[in-house]
Amino acid sequence: MSTTISTPHLQTRHTLPDGTRHASVELLNARLADAIMVGLQAKQAHWNVRGPRFLPLHELFDSVAEHAREWADLMAERAGALGGVVDGTPASVIERSDLPTYPTELIDADGHIERMAEVLASFSRRLLGSIEAAGEAGDPATEDVFTEVARAVDQDFWFVEAHTQG
């Protein structure tokens, strides 16, 4: 259930106009919530996958979770650099992220693969929208951060989705 939450901003001498910085921080905090949610869902899959493909999937999902932490950190640090207050609290993550929820009853490998592929594809779509919005706001550096994260998400999406083919 994605909502718009107004994030406080700090005084800064950053050269971007206030409106641009504020728009970028809102985008960054929204995608931060998504990255945290991806990481939590990847850990859910990591802890609960079962079956003959257990070990490679267990390791793959753990890798996605670690990458999600890195993506979150990159976006949070950009928001802080813009004078924004970074909001990665659990309540904010739940309120801001509208990624598909993860069912707790999943145990089979195919179910986890399908769900993680869906989550990564949804995150990728949101990142593409944020790339466009950051560009329209006039913030090429934030646009670049989203592009970097989108490339990495797409690679993890490929690794997960490859398990559904062949």
Rank of each mutant, 00 (worst) to 15 (best):
T3I: 15
I5R: 15
T7G: 09
P8M: 13
L10A: 04
L10N: 01
T12A: 12
R13W: 03
L16S: 03
V25I: 15
A30R: 00
A33Q: 03
I36T: 07
L40Q: 13
Q41C: 03
A42M: 02
Q44Y: 00
A45I: 08
N48S: 12
N48T: 03
R50H: 04
P52T: 02
P56G: 10
L57T: 09
E59R: 15
F61W: 05
F61H: 10
R69K: 11
R69F: 07
D73W: 03
D73N: 14
L74M: 14
M75N: 14
A76Y: 06
A79F: 04
G83P: 09
G84P: 04
V86E: 08
V86D: 05
G88P: 06
T89N: 02
T89S: 12
E95D: 14
R96F: 08
R96V: 09
L99S: 11
P100M: 00
P100A: 10
T104S: 09
D110S: 14
D110I: 01
H112G: 09
E114W: 07
R115D: 13
R115K: 14
A121R: 08
A121E: 07
F123D: 06
S124M: 01
R125N: 14
R126P: 03
E132G: 03
A133N: 00
A137P: 09
D139M: 11
T142W: 08
E143G: 06
V145T: 05
T147K: 06
E148W: 05
V149D: 06
A150Y: 06
A152Y: 06
A152L: 07
Q155Y: 10
E161I: 04
A162T: 10
H163Q: 14
